[in-house]
Design a binder for these strands. Structure first.
Length: 592
RNA sequence: GCGCCAGUAGCUCAGCCGGAUAGAGCAUCGGAUUUCUAAUCCGAGGGUCAGGGGUUCGAAUCCCUUCUGGCGUACCA
């Protein structure tokens, strides 16, 4: 029986994590102990266990082994050829219950685990941790602030606000899984000159009726820009109105409140559909009363200087344009408010990390922002991260935001749901609860397509691609989950972890279990680099392994012992897929 | 002009703190269902890892350089 173990996730972990993993994986621990001792006895060279552990990787081919020790690095320290080292170490190996065999292949020493033991170990972990499998307590007592979505009032929620929300929410969940306390903040763009513009537009063209929907507000906004092209005085007028607003003027404050309420109603509708929540909705306006203090601190630090009548922090020394703090009319800017908000959040939450999930086009802003914090003497600026993501591009000219056209998120989501409904009608017309499932699948497809690629990649917004439910997609993962649930339903009993794992002797079964074992590693890696796509990619690998297995082996058969064992495996896969889907904000349907 | 990011199969991407034979999905073509859900699986074709130099026992991966594309570059956010 050939072996088909092929995966590579081990090779890229940080040394720190590898240490933690060894606690979890006794197989690697065993290898590390063996190598450490052997190097000592064979070459009289002493190496730390964590050094050895960093070297352990996974061979690229199933025939080669489960874990490998490349001997190149050792060769330098021991001053022998890597081939010779591998050979000499291999000779001294004795099998035990964890590692059953070792093979020397050129400069590599390849280890084979005791599969039955490995499977037993992993399945027991999953069975005992259940929904908690993949979590840890490494963040206990620490806090992460995540700033996501943060749309501007009076415009429709744009696609990039959805990206920010989905990425941000996933990062939030990842850190919760690692035991951190998280604060999710929607830093609403509810302040700034654009409010002056809106007020001007409303007063001039708003008519008698009080606006009640975001479409009306948006039209006013668009009209303002159109008219301002011919009449630049409108810009001055809007700056004056914003100034009034900032000074607490009644009329403008009332309008501001109205505009904000209308927008929030609209936003909440979309957030509900996507399952996005926040702990705080403290937008820019929230900091209005604190701005003077912030500016005062900047002044005291001697950072402020006057330039063309505006107050700025000069950043020439750092090869950056100056950071504007107050405009020539004394009004604040977004940098002012961001700095103020950061100070507030540090006071309020005493975070260990603060994450801004905002598009790449604002890179310079965050670079300046961090530099100013540093110059103010805040060491914690080191723990502020701009988690940027690529632009959303439109293939289809009809949907371009240019020419005042926008993709309405609500339309996009509804389109996806109705597409899911069509497919259900076609494939499984008698499905119970099909409306709810169409929701989960339709929305899931959107969420998944947004998170599956590295965030830095630009997204080519293409209906056909986003609404394609074949291949590496959200529906694929959900479908896999539903199938597993279906098998367990058919089995009719509760999976019994007492079933014999030794019966799971197929290569596909072992491969699957290895993927499951890597799930907590994927979580950790994804959180470390704020990259949900790492988790998504791992979920796809699990599903792909499972489907391959499913098509090759029957789970429920006449052999009741074997069936019992396979059901335990199936239940564990189901559990892990469920955990992963929830982590990225998707619902795992029991059937579809 | 300057700065940052990206360039891997026809398309979308993974792999990138150097290691064993560059991998997926989509699309195309060919197969699999009396059997636990075919939204699945198996197979085929498809590559100058943008070009050039360098470092190294070894480079898609690190350094330099050129080209292409995107974004940013003080009173918008």
């Amino acid at each position: 029986m050939g072996e088909r173990i092929n995966e590579n996730a081990f090779s890229e972990q940080s040394g720190e994590y590898k240490l933690a993993r060894s606690v979890m994986n006794p197989f690697i621990k065993r290898i590390v102990c063996f190598v450490t001792e052997s190097v000592q006895s064979a070459f009289d060279v002493e190496l730390a266990q964590c050094e050895i552990e960093k070297l352990i990787e996974v061979p690229p081919d199933y025939k080669m082994g489960d874990y490998a020790l490349p001997c190149f690095i050792l060769a330098k320290q021991v001053k022998r050829s890597p081939q010779m080292i591998a050979e000499k170490l291999g000779v001294g190996f004795e099998a035990d219950e964890y590692i059953k065999n070792v093979v020397t292949t050129g400069p590599y020493l390849n280890f084979f685990v005791n599969r039955g033991m490995f499977i037993r170990h992993v399945l027991h972990c999953i069975d005992s941790e259940k929904d908690g499998f993949g979590t840890s307590d490494e963040g206990e007592g620490k806090c992460v602030v995540v700033d996501y979505s943060s749309p501007n009032i009076a415009k429709h929620l744009a696609v990039h606000h959805m990206r920010s929300a989905l990425i941000g929410r996933s990062i939030y969940n990842l850190y919760v899984a690692l035991g951190y306390k998280c604060c999710g903040i929607n830093h609403l763009g509810d302040w700034g000159t654009q409010f002056g513009k809106l007020i001007v537009a409303y007063k001039k063209w708003g008519g008698e009726e009080t606006p009640s929907d975001i479409e009306t507000l948006y039209k006013l906004y668009v009209r303002f820009h159109k008219e301002a092209e011919d009449d630049p005085s409108l810009e001055d007028e809007s700056r004056e109105w914003f100034k009034k607003l900032e000074n607490g003027d009644d009329e403008s404050s009332e309008l501001w409140r109205l505009f904000k309420d209308i927008s929030m109603k609209e936003f909440d509708k979309i957030y509900d559909m996507l399952g996005i929540t926040f702990d705080y909705y403290t937008g820019e306006s929230f900091y209005n009363g604190m701005l003077d203090d912030t500016v005062e601190r900047l002044k005291e630090s001697g950072l402020l200087e006057l330039s063309d009548n505006a107050q700025v922090v000069n950043l020439d020394k750092y090869n950056m344009p100056p950071c504007l703090i107050r405009k020539s009319d004394d009004a604040s800017l977004y940098a002012t408010r961001d700095i103020c908000a950061a100070e507030y959040r540090k006071r309020e939450f005493d975070f260990d990390k603060m994450v801004y999930v905002v598009g790449s086009e604002q890179k310079l802003h965050f670079k300046q922002f961090k530099k100013v914090l540093e110059l103010m003497g805040y060491e914690w600026q080191d723990e502020c991260y701009h988690v940027d993501f690529g632009l959303v591009k439109f293939k289809d000219e009809k949907m371009s935001t240019r020419k005042g056209k926008v993709v309405l998120l609500e339309d996009l989501l509804n389109e996806s749901i109705s597409r899911a409904r069509e497919i259900i009608k076609e494939k499984n017309p008698d499905l119970d609860g099909r409306d709810e499932i169409a929701d989960a699948v339709g929305i899931g497809a959107i969420i998944f397509s947004d998170l599956k690629n590295k965030r830095i990649k630009d997204v080519n917004f293409d209906w056909d691609e986003i609404l394609n439910f074949d291949g590496e997609t959200g529906p694929y993962v959900q479908y896999t989950h539903a199938r597993l649930c279906s098998i367990i339903r058919k089995y009719g009993k509760n999976p019994d972890i007492g079933a014999d794992p030794e019966l799971l002797s197929e290569d596909e079964e072992f491969l699957l279990v290895k993927k499951l074992e890597q799930y907590p590693v994927a979580i950790k890696r994804a959180a470390d680099v704020f990259e949900p796509s790492i988790l998504v990619g791992h979920l796809l690998e699990i599903c792909s392994s499972l489907n391959s297995y499913y098509n090759q082996c029957r789970i429920i058969s006449d052999d009741s012992s074997l069936t019992d064992s396979r059901i335990v495996l199936i239940d564990c896969v189901r559990q892990v897929i469920k955990n992963g889907l929830l982590m990225i904000g998707m619902r795992p349907p029991d059937r579809m």
